[in-house]
Amino acid sequence: MEDPLHPFELHTIVPLSLFGLDVSINKAVIMMFVVVGLVILLLTKARSSGSLVPTKLQSMAELLVEFIRGMIHDTMGPEGMRFFPLIATLFLFILFCNLLGLMPGAYTVTSQLVVTGVFALGVYVLSILVGLKIHGMKFLSILVPSGTPGWLLPLMVPIEIISQLARPVSLSVRLFANMTAGHVILGVLFGLAISGGLLIGWLPFSFTVALYGLEVGIAFIQAYIFTILTCVYMGDAFHLH
């Protein structure tokens, strides 16, 4: 049987280099272009009609905006609406990457730790910068949990630093691991179905079909979790406990 991690390998299609940096086009880059293009196309089409009685696409877009706005209001409060474009872009990009990656022959961009890592690190650094801008040096009090006795400080501050540093790690690893593991399981089960033949192959094949449905759900849930945790981290920067 084929190596189950084989589909995650990337091969250069168009070699390019910019100032000595390798910016070659590969399957993941093409997928990202497709995702961005599709999101822009869908949303401009939803916007174009602009009628009072919304079309199907328009009401879906309105539902989406309401959903993201509710998420931001719950976690950051009304002042967080400044970050609506960022949050909405993140959510749509990750969601479409996850969903389009489920198409046979496509590539799941979010199964690369580089991609999710850059998102998580960017969001985390931004939340720290926002906190420092709003609260100044008082922002460092996030490292001291409220109600800590003085003699515990040498222990609590390193623990808080570690749990702060763990935020981008867990954010990126969660998305990457979920997508990779799901696709590996699908690949292995489908490989079993093919090598099993008609006699026994129907059993792993039916598992593949069931798991595929689960993967669609996971694509939504992981995109949602990534964005809501982004909102929560941003909210922590807004409101010191």
Binding site: D74, S163, A177, I221
Partner: peptide, 28 residues
């Protein structure tokens, strides 16, 4: 984390957090 519009999603989101957080803090 405050409640989100969808209670099933919100609960799931919080529960899933626990496992990865344990791993991530240990790694860091």
């Amino acid at each position: 984390m405050p409640s989100s519009p969808d209670p099933v999603f919100a609960g799931l989101g919080q529960a899933v957090q626990i496992g990865t957080n344990l791993l991530a803090t240990l790694m860091v």
